[in-house]
Amino acid sequence: MGRPANPNRRPELLAQILEYVASSSLSRVTFRSLASALGVSTYVLVYHFGSRKELIDAILDESVRMRREALDGLDVASFSREEMLVWMREAFIASLEPRHLPGIRIQFEAGSLERIDPDIGTRITDSYGVWRALFGEWLRRQGVATAEIDRLAVHITNCLFGTQFGYLITGDREATIDVFDIALATTIGQVDAATA
Rank of each mutant, 00 (worst) to 15 (best):
S27K: 14
L26R: 12
T170Q: 10
I188L: 15
A145G: 07
M88P: 00
Y20I: 01
L18A: 04
F135D: 01
R151K: 15
G171P: 07
H100T: 00
P118E: 09
E109D: 08
I104S: 01
A5D: 09
P102R: 08
L14K: 08
Y167C: 10
L160E: 00
L13A: 01
Y167M: 12
L14V: 02
L45C: 07
G121Q: 14
R10Y: 01
R67C: 10
A22N: 10
H155M: 10
E148Y: 09
I177M: 03
T157A: 11
D57Q: 13
G171N: 12
S33C: 04
S112M: 11
G111D: 04
G2M: 13
Q16K: 14
D181C: 05
P4R: 13
V40F: 12
I169R: 15
V179I: 07
T176Q: 03
L168E: 08
A185W: 12
F79V: 01
V86R: 15
A77E: 13
E114R: 10
L14W: 03
L134K: 05
W87T: 06
L139C: 09
N6C: 07
I116Y: 15
E114M: 12
L55W: 05
L18N: 07
E174C: 07
M66I: 13
F49R: 13
A175G: 04
I169A: 14
E83D: 10
R81A: 05
L101K: 02
R99C: 04
Y43D: 02
F165K: 07
R123I: 13
A133Q: 10
F31E: 02
G143N: 08
Y128E: 08
A196V: 15
R115E: 11
I59W: 06
F180Q: 02
A58V: 00
W131I: 05
I106S: 02
R68W: 11
A175D: 04
I93Q: 12
E148S: 15
V29Q: 10
D57C: 10
A194E: 05
L113F: 14
Y167A: 09
G103E: 02
A147W: 14
L18S: 04
D61Y: 06
T195W: 12
L168I: 12
A183E: 01
S127Q: 14
S23I: 13
P7K: 06
I177W: 01
A194G: 05
